[in-house]
Amino acid sequence: MTLPDLSQAVWRKSSRSSSQANCVEVGFAPGAVAVRDTKDRTGGTLAFPAASWAAFLNAQR
């Protein structure tokens, strides 16, 4: 599996995040979507193919 290049990802903090805890960001890069902890941006990042992320969101409706 090839890891996506997230160096140019555009990150957006979740509107459901609070200022004290449970903060997540979603990053959009070509062909991929990533999720990371806002409080620990250098920690682990989960990345998904864009099509898999879209399928996940559609399943939540």
Rank of each mutant, 00 (worst) to 15 (best):
A32N: 07
A29V: 06
G44V: 04
T42F: 09
F56I: 13
T42M: 11
T45R: 01
T42S: 15
W11I: 12
A21M: 12
A50V: 06
D5A: 11
E25L: 03
S18G: 15
S52R: 05
S15F: 02
T45L: 12
S7E: 14
L6H: 04
V26R: 02
D5K: 10
N58M: 06
F28R: 07
R12S: 13
A50H: 08
G43I: 09
V33A: 02
W53A: 14
G43T: 01
F56P: 12
A21R: 08
W53K: 02
N22K: 12
V26L: 11
D37M: 08
T2G: 09
S19M: 12
V10P: 06
S7M: 04
S17Y: 00
W11G: 10
N58W: 11
G44R: 00
G43V: 03
S18D: 08
A21V: 09
K13C: 05
Q20I: 02
P49Y: 01
D5Q: 06
S52Q: 10
T42I: 05
K39I: 15
L46S: 13
S18Q: 13
W53S: 12
P49D: 12
A47W: 11
S14A: 10
D5R: 11
T45Y: 00
L3P: 05
A59I: 00
F56Y: 05
C23S: 09
V24N: 02
D37C: 00
Q20W: 08
A9L: 04
T38Q: 10
Q60D: 06
V26Q: 04
G43A: 11
A55P: 13
G27H: 01
S17V: 00
V26H: 03
S17M: 07
A51N: 11
R41Y: 14
Q60K: 15
A9D: 08
T42L: 15
A9I: 08
G43N: 09
E25S: 09
G31K: 02
S14N: 02
W53G: 07
D37Q: 06
Q60W: 12
G31E: 07
A9W: 13
Q20Y: 15
A51S: 15
R61W: 13
V33P: 03
A32F: 14
S52M: 04
R41W: 03
S15Y: 03
G44I: 04
F28A: 04
F48I: 05
A47C: 01
S15E: 03
Q20C: 04
A9Q: 10
S18H: 12
Q60T: 11
Q20M: 14
A59V: 01
R61V: 13
S14Q: 12
S14V: 04
D5L: 07
E25H: 01
V10T: 14
R12I: 14
W53I: 08
G44E: 05
D40H: 09
R36V: 06
P4E: 05
V24H: 10
